Simulated assay, not measured.
Amino acid sequence: MGTLSATPAQAAAPRCDIRAIKPWVYPASGVVVATNSTSCYGPVRNVRISTRLYKFHAGWVVFVFKRQVWGAVKSNRNGSLNAWGASSPAGACTRYMTQATVKWTTASGTPKSKVRYSGAVKLRASGPC
């Protein structure tokens, strides 16, 4: 998993970017993990990031949600946020998807946001189906 990168000209423009990473199974526990990769180039303020793990069960439903507040970013900040959820029974294959969101306010007070989705992937406690 890598972080987002930008050219010097892009980095000079205050903003936040986010990437939704396909869910994966943590081998030691069989737990399904949804991850985002976030980068903010300041000055921006009131930065909030979230990750949702969606599970397909007669339609897409939010299975796990995690949120983090970064607050003000004066220069640059990179990071990620994981949402962990118990996997389906070992033999069952279930579809999962990640939603990643970043919200921030520009120096002039304009609220901004970006939402990204990963592709869907079929997983079980032991890994891919």
Rank of each mutant, 00 (worst) to 15 (best):
V61N: 07
W60T: 04
I49V: 15
R45P: 03
K22E: 15
R95G: 03
A13K: 09
R124F: 05
V44F: 04
N82H: 12
R19V: 03
F56L: 07
I21T: 12
G91M: 00
K22V: 13
N36Q: 15
A20L: 01
H57R: 11
P8M: 02
V32L: 09
R95E: 14
T106E: 06
P23D: 05
Q99C: 03
S108D: 07
R95K: 15
V47M: 05
R116N: 07
G2N: 13
T110F: 02
S118H: 03
K74Y: 10
V73K: 00
S87T: 13
S39E: 14
T51M: 06
V61I: 15
R67P: 00
M97C: 13
V62I: 05
G2A: 14
Y54P: 03
M97T: 11
P43A: 13
G85C: 03
S88P: 09
S5H: 03
V31Q: 13
V62S: 01
T110Q: 10
G119C: 10
S126G: 07
V33Q: 07
A12M: 00
T3C: 06
S118Y: 01
P27M: 03
S113E: 13
Y54E: 11
S80K: 09
K66S: 11
I18M: 06
N78Q: 08
A11D: 00
V115W: 03
S39K: 15
G71V: 01
G59S: 03
G2Y: 06
L4V: 00
F63G: 08
A9N: 00
R67N: 08
N78C: 04
W84V: 10
K74S: 11
P128T: 14
V73M: 00
K74M: 14
N78F: 10
